[in-house]
Amino acid sequence: MSDLLEGLGAAWVLLISGDRELWAIIGLSLWVSGAALAISTVVGVPLGAWLGLRSFHGRELVATVIYTGMGLPPVVVGLFVYLLLSRSGVFGQLGWLFTPRAMVVAQTVISLPLIVGLTITAVEGVGVALRDQLRALGATAGQIARAVLWEARSGMIVALVAGFGSIISEVGAVMLVGGNIEGSTRVLTTAIVLETRKGAFNQALALAFVLLGLTFALNAIALHLQGRLMRRGT
């Protein structure tokens, strides 16, 4: 218990002392996970909405693949991305391995199925009956899609929160494709692993509390936004 309290104290000291290395790590963590979330959102929300709204031959298979992707172990994703970006890999010529770009790619692969899958669930949750009612009021397919997305807004925010949570806290993929290089690809999770291995538990705990605090703050913002959106009319 005292270790935890010491860690909490150390985290506070590190933050207010303006420790450059810590702030660089926080900045990179937010940049990598933020970029991955942005890409996953731009691709995943429309794709999930489309899959949730349409029925076509093979849709079940596509949904099964996506739901399987929601449980992909980050270390496995890291391994695949590593192989694809390594010198002999298909995308080796890009030279992205052990750069933040490779970490963004890996985290996008992790968060994309989550955002697509949860968006499908949110859109399907609105129900066919409401869509029929909107059609009966003369709504076009586009107008129905817009209304359904609005009705599913709460579930879609949950999708984004889950997507972000899955990548800001993962270590396996970013460790493999980023390499935890100081000043270049070190993020909060990989830094915690490093400090733990060194036996610097206070430092590791401090970083862990920073990560927890950051995640808490971002989720609080997301939930506040969700509440505001739920109170708003169409």
Partner: peptide, 26 residues
Amino acid sequence: TVPHEITLVFQRPLLLDTTVRANVAY
């Protein structure tokens, strides 16, 4: 698309999660 001059009110009222006025105006 259902012609704009026909409409159906279902047995179970299906409303949008917004105000009464916005629903009426929809």
